[in-house]
Amino acid sequence: MTIPRFWREIPIRYNLMGSKCPLCGTVFFPPKEICKICRRVSIDQMIHEKLSGRGTILTHTTVHEAPTDFESQVPYYLAIIELDEGPSVLGQIADCTNGDLAIGKRVHSVFRRVSEDGVSGTIHYGYKFVLDHSR
């Protein structure tokens, strides 16, 4: 991923910045310019909102075949997490082993190194999640 492309999304990836539609109350992550439910009337109305990073595992997997930038991390753990504010996100679960993960377990976000670009050497940071009650 090129540096400008990564840099653009830093506020969202570092601070878990979402957006809320004041008309219907739906929270989106990543933030949306318009609410996909209210559409036209929500233009210029959306409010940026920092999310708590707390949520519940909806599903998870252990990755054994990875893209180049992630090959050094194999095996790693991915999950889809339903955040307490409503939206779901995909992220890695850190500091765990295979047996620790289960649907329904509670997690919270942490700031971590996500990957290293093998070609440019750029290190990408962002959110990961850890289990609330890890051993």
């Binding site: 990543p30 599903t59 893209p67 991390q73 999950a79 649907i103 996500v114």
Partner: peptide
């Protein structure tokens, strides 16, 4: 999605694997 899936290490098989896990559940 490059920005919100691939950036975190997701691949096509990883997404289908997560659907499989949830279907089993």
């Amino acid at each position: 999605d490059q920005e919100w899936e691939c950036f975190f290490g997701a691949t096509q098989p990883s997404l289908w694997a997560m659907m499989a896990r949830r279907h089993m559940h």
